[in-house]
């Protein structure tokens, strides 16, 4: 008798309806409260509004960030100076560990390679594609195809790329990896792609670039669309070549956007761990900080070393923050 089939079906209907109801209520309630606040606040006197504006506009986000990110960040900082189960202080031991153990030095080296290559390649490719398709017919199809990986979860991406990189050592068994098959068809000797360092790190980076290029392209192409037509047309009339137009007009015009895209992708790359975790488990010298941090904290239950790695990650981002600060200051004074 088919018990296995029916019980879930019943619970399915039981949960889908409440799900949709909860969904509706949550959004309606949230927007309702905001509507009410605006109705009341707009009637308040200017003095009241001057105080109220901070409470309504700034306080909710600030409060959430305080408890959700700042407090954990401080906790992490403290834990990074403590031992595995956070019961006593150990000074800088965890940091010394991070910079002296050879495996962790490989982790740091890989993270550096990732954060250099991924933002440059994705942004570069995204920029090129955005430019090439800027005035093209049916650009939407092209752009959608390139954007598609953004819509795929890391779990899904891991499955997809398995069919590309997988390698069959036994010549008697069929090859189901695309890359190896192409190699065989070309009569080259396929390699065990995910095993050979540093090739494997580069191949993992390809997956991240594959995902991020769509992001860069979409944002940059939006920015390009906003370059006033008069400027490009003036350049056209002057007979400026395509390449010169690209370097002299397009890039300077959307420079600020490029910086934003580079920054966002860099931060995303520093935090990436799913790709490495699902594809190599951090083995074969492909490990990166974010994965090692997860493994130290939750696999090996060492909050001390895990936290120290997190702080190193945070410190690594500081130059990027400083650059952005200066960028913003510059723009503020220009206005």
């Amino acid at each position: 008798m088919n018990v296995a089939m029916m019980i879930p079906q019943r619970s399915l209907w039981d949960t889908v309806l409440p799900n949709l109801t909860i969904l509706g209520i949550a959004i309606a309630a949230f927007l309702g409260v905001i509507f009410l606040i605006f109705v009341l606040a707009e009637r308040a006197s200017n003095n009241v509004q001057n105080i109220l504006k901070y409470i309504v506009f700034l306080a909710p986000a600030a409060l959430l960030l305080l408890i959700g990110l700042i407090y954990p960040a401080i906790r992490t900082l403290i834990f990074s100076f403590m031992n595995a189960n956070s019961s006593e202080f150990v000074g800088f031991d965890n940091y010394t560990w991070a910079f002296t153990i050879p495996e962790i030095r490989i982790v740091l080296r890989n993270t550096l390679i990732w954060t250099l290559l991924v933002p440059i390649l994705s942004t570069g490719l995204g920029l090129a594609i955005a430019y090439m398709t800027d005035r093209m017919k049916r650009a939407a199809v092209i752009k959608s195809l390139i954007f598609m990986p953004m819509a795929i979860s890391f779990v899904g991406a891991g499955i997809i790329w398995r069919f590309v990189y997988t390698y069959e050592a036994n010549v008697n068994r069929p090859e189901i990896g695309l890359l190896s098959s192409i190699w065989r068809a070309m009569e080259w000797e396929p390699r065990n792609w995910l095993l050979e360092a540093p090739l494997n790190t580069l191949l993992l980076i390809v997956v991240m670039v594959w995902i991020q290029t769509g992001f860069a392209m979409v944002v940059l192409s939006a920015a390009m669309r906003n370059i006033p037509d008069e400027i490009t047309e003036a350049a056209l009339l002057d007979g400026t070549s395509n390449f010169r137009r690209f370097t002299r007009i397009t890039i300077p015009m959307i420079r600020a956007t490029i910086v934003v895209v580079l920054t966002t992708i860099t931060i995303g790359t520093l935090k990436v761990f799913d790709i490495v975790r699902t594809m190599t488990g951090g083995n074969f010298q492909t490990n990166v900080i974010a994965n090692e941090m997860y493994s130290q904290s939750f696999r090996q239950m060492n909050y001390g070393t895990g936290s120290a790695l997190a702080i190193i990650l945070f410190v690594a981002i500081i130059p990027i923050i400083i650059y952005n600060v200066r960028q913003l200051r510059l723009e503020r004074t220009e206005r």
Partner: peptide, 12 residues
């Protein structure tokens, strides 16, 4: 707030 982007999710 900008800097907070880098706080790793796992630690929160």
């Amino acid at each position: 707030i900008f800097a907070l982007q880098v706080v790793p999710l796992q630690l929160t």
